[in-house]
Design a protein around this nucleic acid. Structure first.
Length: 305
DNA sequence: TTCCAGGTGGCAT
DNA sequence: ATGCCACATGGA
């Protein structure tokens, strides 16, 4: 176990972990959150501008305290000044102020690419509690054990090559419905893509690391186009992966909630997604994804669940 | 029972 | 390029 304390601003742990960008953090009785990311499980408790983190060190313990501190700083996107971004967005758009106020402590997590791919393929036409349940079951059945903290045990996101060898029917217990075949097929595509990469760079690196590095070198248009080639990844899921899994802060996922909130706020029809994208580009760039998350949170707070 | 959820693939225009 | 529609699952 490693203890770390970080100073945080523009940070609300509850908003960050329950706003629908991630699915593997669980709220505890004391208001802390227990969960897993980057193959580590941890508990995080916020006290004002202090964030106390307990990290379960992996058995083969490669990580030292400094690595873990850096990892969480990266994951929580602490280097970014959300205060100035909120100001920038408010000044450029008259309607987003209310949304920012309701979700003022939201930050975009820098999640692992492969976890984002898996998570958002499962997310399609699905609701958040069920998405969480499916991902948990998938990890428990096919992921490597990470440890136990606060009475909860965690398993890692399954490796691409593990899922690639399954048939969709094998995933029956996970209750993914028709998404099971998307997940298996995308895993195959990821493994194949990595196998086709120049050998040498891939030596010793896991497939999930290789695929993340591959996508990290692409710009938004390239990454978006490549993501659309994956089975079960369309425009919305591709933008979620780009935003949450690649840190491309200008990607603007449009789901049913964003359609609703933008229709209300900007007097559009819910079908006018092209107009919504245009508005996002013109007013929110280069932080469309952050603006989107404030909007998403706001509509769900006021009308959703 | 019907509707809905962080939509997409496949097919017909 | 655009418009339908089936697609599993479980909760409201």
């Amino acid at each position: 176990m490693e203890n770390t304390t970080l100073k945080v601003k523009d940070f609300n742990i509850r908003q960050i972990f329950l706003c629908g960008q991630c699915f593997r953090w669980y709220e505890e009785e004391d208001g802390s959150f227990t969960g897993a990311a980057f193959g580590l499980c941890a508990n995080m408790r916020q006290e004002g501008e202090m964030l106390h983190i307990k990290t379960v060190l992996p058995a083969e313990n490669a990580g030292n305290a400094m690595d873990i501190r850096r990892l969480w700083e990266y994951y929580l996107d602490l280097a970014r000044d959300y205060g100035s971004i909120k100001k920038y967005l408010s000044e450029r758009d008259g309607k987003i102020g209310a949304a920012i106020e309701s979700g003022t402590g939201i930050r975009i997590l820098r999640q692992e690419f492969w976890e984002a791919v898996v998570s958002f393929i499962i997310s399609q036409n699905n609701n958040i509690p069920r998405i969480r349940g499916c991902i948990e079951k998938l990890c428990n059945l096919y992921g490597k054990p990470l440890g136990t903290i606060g009475g909860r045990s965690f398993w890692d996101i399954p490796e691409p090559q593990v899922l690639a060898e399954l048939k969709a029917e094998d995933l029956g217990e996970v209750r993914l419905g028709y998404r099971a075949s998307y997940l298996v097929e995308t895993a195959r595509q990821v493994v194949e893509l990595c196998n086709g990469l120049e050998t040498g760079t891939g030596n010793g690196k896991s497939i999930r690391r290789q695929i993340e590095e591959y996508f990290s070198k692409l710009n938004y248009d390239q990454a978006y186009g490549k993501l659309l080639e994956f089975q079960g990844v369309g425009p919305k899921v591709a933008n979620c992966i780009a935003l949450f899994g690649l840190g491309l802060m200008d990607s603007f996922p449009i789901d049913v909630w964003v359609k609703r909130v933008m229709a209300r706020a900007y007097g559009m029809g819910e079908g006018e997604t092209a107009t919504m994208e245009k508005l996002a580009r013109e007013r929110f760039a280069p932080y469309g994804g952050i603006a989107q998350q404030y909007l998403f949170y706001h509509i769900r707070e006021t009308e959703g669940k």
